Measured scan of single mutants.
Amino acid sequence: MAAGGDHGSPDSYRSPLASRYASPEMCFVFSDRYKFRTWRQLWLWLAEAEQTLGLPITDEQIQEMKSNLENIDFKMAAEEEKRLRHDVMAHVHTFGHCCPKAAGIIHLGATSCYVGDNTDLIILRNALDLLLPKLARVISRLADFAKERASLPTLGFTHFQPAQLTTVGKRCCLWIQDLCMDLQNLKRVRDDLRFRGVKGTTGTQASFLQLFEGDDHKVEQLDKMVTEKAGFKRAFIITGQTYTRKVDIEVLSVLASLGASVHKICTDIRLLANLKEMEEPFEKQQIGSSAMPYKRNPMRSERCCSLARHLMTLVMDPLQTASVQWFERTLDDSANRRICLAEAFLTADTILNTLQNISEGLVVYPKVIERRIRQELPFMATENIIMAMVKAGGSRQDCHEKIRVLSQQAASVVKQEGGDNDLIERIQVDAYFSPIHSQLDHLLDPSSFTGRASQQVQRFLEEEVYPLLKPYESVMKVKAELCL
Rank of each mutant, 00 (worst) to 15 (best):
A2F: 09
A2G: 10
A2E: 13
A3D: 14
G4V: 14
G4I: 12
D6A: 13
S23E: 08
P24V: 09
E25C: 15
M26A: 00
C27K: 01
F30T: 10
Y34I: 01
K35H: 15
K35C: 14
F36S: 00
L42A: 03
L42G: 04
L42H: 01
W45C: 01
L46K: 07
A47Y: 04
E50N: 10
Q51K: 03
L55G: 05
P56F: 01
D59F: 08
E60T: 06
Q61V: 04
I62P: 01
K66Q: 05
L69C: 15
E70H: 15
N71K: 05
F74M: 02
A77F: 05
A77T: 07
R85M: 12
R85D: 02
D87M: 02
V88C: 15
T94A: 09
G96T: 01
G96M: 11
C99T: 13
P100N: 11
A103R: 06
G104T: 05
G109K: 06
A110T: 07
T111K: 08
T111F: 04
Y114R: 02
Y114F: 06
G116E: 04
N118Q: 11
N118C: 15
D120K: 15
D120I: 13
L128W: 03
L131T: 03
R137P: 13
R137F: 07
R141A: 06
A143F: 14
F145M: 00
K147V: 04
R149P: 03
A150T: 13
S151V: 02
S151W: 04
L152M: 11
F157H: 02
A163M: 08
Q164Y: 09
T166V: 15
G169E: 02
C173K: 02
W175E: 13
D182E: 03
K187F: 01
K187Y: 14
K187V: 08
R188E: 12
R188D: 01
V189I: 08
V189S: 01
L193D: 08
R194M: 05
R196Q: 11
G197L: 08
V198L: 02
T202Y: 00
S207M: 02
L209D: 15
Q210G: 06
G214P: 00
G214N: 02
D215R: 10
L222W: 04
T227R: 01
E228V: 11
A230V: 06
I237G: 10
I237K: 13
T242M: 06
R245S: 10
K246E: 09
K246C: 09
V247T: 04
D248C: 14
I249S: 08
E250A: 10
E250S: 13
S257P: 15
A260S: 15
C266M: 09
T267H: 14
T267R: 06
L272N: 08
L275I: 04
E283Y: 12
G288W: 06
R296A: 11
N297P: 07
P298L: 06
S301V: 08
A308W: 05
L311Q: 08
L319F: 15
Q320K: 12
Q320R: 08
A322E: 07
Q325S: 07
W326R: 06
R329M: 01
L331D: 15
D332K: 03
R337D: 01
R337V: 00
L341R: 03
A344W: 05
T350W: 06
I351R: 06
L355F: 02
Q356S: 00
L362A: 02
Y365E: 04
R372C: 15
P378F: 09
F379P: 13
E383A: 11
I385S: 08
K391L: 00
Q397V: 08
E401G: 04
L406W: 03
A411E: 08
A411Q: 05
Q416D: 14
E425K: 13
Q439A: 12
D441A: 02
H442E: 11
L444S: 01
P446Y: 15
S447W: 14
S447C: 12
F449G: 05
T450V: 08
G451F: 05
S454Q: 10
R459Q: 12
L461E: 02
L468V: 00
P471G: 11
E481S: 09
E481H: 04
E481I: 03
L482F: 15
L484Y: 08
